[in-house]
Design a binder for these strands. Structure first.
Lengths: 193, 193
DNA sequence: GTTTTAACATACCGATCGGTACACAAAAAA
DNA sequence: TTTTTTGTGTACCGATCGGTATGTTAAAAC
């Protein structure tokens, strides 16, 4: 053993995640990273590899925490309809209070990197698929409880809701009127019958 | 008057549009632009200003042609339901045949630039609002003809469809199964009742 | 034909990019 | 205490970035 690390690997990774989330891959420079992470370049490279590897590690950290947060949020409501309403409205509130609006790190990456890098095409697709499964389980719970019609196609419905969630998240980046956003959520939630 | 331009301004602007559409703002370099547009740097600067101005001009060209194309597509079907189905399915087909999938230039810009540049926040928002109006007019046509229920909230519904369209376009960048995409479209179109 | 005007191509600018060589500092191993 | 190992900070690498100065060429104006 030699000298011990002076920085907390989780903390500096989190700082990198915040930065990539906010600015994307290309627009984030190594200088941005060193100042935000509070460590020097060689420390980044020895701990996380090059810029792309660091980005991937940060994104994986994001998706895994985002997935478990999503599961938790949807479980904290008895009513499935209320659960989805609260979930969507929370997305809106966060986006309006964030300035600049960061949106979803995974969605940002789908747009910026997925079309040109198969690794991120797969990573982002699998995250969305995973979220769809969480949605589906929630819908199935609603069917079980009798809140939703028994002939509901849980899988197809969950996929449509994921698509709407993505669209909502992206749309919010242009800061549309609240009424636009509220209308779309209201209409979309009528799918839960 | 001095020497006349040797290049077609519309053609080279179109080339720039294709490139920005495919790679985004940051990832497109001036060298990429000169080689794709077939003209030298000073010609770009004299004809279109700096990189950001050229990008904005290219995006405006895109949104205006995209809007009129959308209106045309929705008008070519008697049935409003069929019009929207064909419209959504066309988006899917184009995305799957494009490699890499370019998605929508305006949506790409919403994600990359809108959060950090008010000019593009406004420009992209207004394009989406304009598309929403086109959707709304189409829905109102369906109400008039009796195809859609008379108590349909055309505005709210059009906004929800825009959100789904954005979500679909973004989701396609991760190349999900056709079944995922078909399911979401099928469910979303049940909103047209 | 001469002058004037503007587009052309080349070659270059300083700044910044991602990435690393190297010397020094610190802590474990001997 | 000495040796070995590994992290840290500095200073630098070549490449590329967006943008421009400059000299040349071509066409309109006279």
């Amino acid at each position: 053993m030699g000298r011990v690390r002076e920085f907390d690997e989780e903390k500096v990774l989190d700082a990198a995640m915040q930065l990539f989330w906010e600015k994307g891959y290309e627009a984030t420079s190594l200088s941005d990273l060193t100042s935000r992470m509070g460590i020097q370049r060689p420390s980044i490279y020895s701990a996380f590899g090059d810029k792309k590897e660091l980005f991937e590690t940060a994104l994986r950290k994001y998706t895994s925490s985002r997935a478990s947060e999503t599961r938790t949020r949807l479980q904290t409501h008895q009513s499935v309809r209320e659960a989805f309403r609260a979930f969507f409205e929370n997305v809106v509130d966060e986006e309006y209070s964030d300035s600049p609006s960061r949106g979803c790190f995974c969605i940002n990456t789908m747009v910026e990197l997925a079309p040109h890098d198969e690794k991120f095409e797969i990573l982002t697709r699998e995250h969305q698929m995973y979220l769809a499964v969480i949605f589906q389980e929630t819908i199935e719970r609603g069917i079980q409880s009798g809140e939703l019609a028994s002939d509901t196609n849980a899988k197809a419905l969950s996929q449509a809701l994921i698509v709407s969630l993505i669209g909502l998240t992206v749309m919010l980046k242009s800061r549309p009127d609240r009424s636009f956003v509220n209308n779309s959520i209201e209409v979309t939630l009528t799918l839960l019958r």
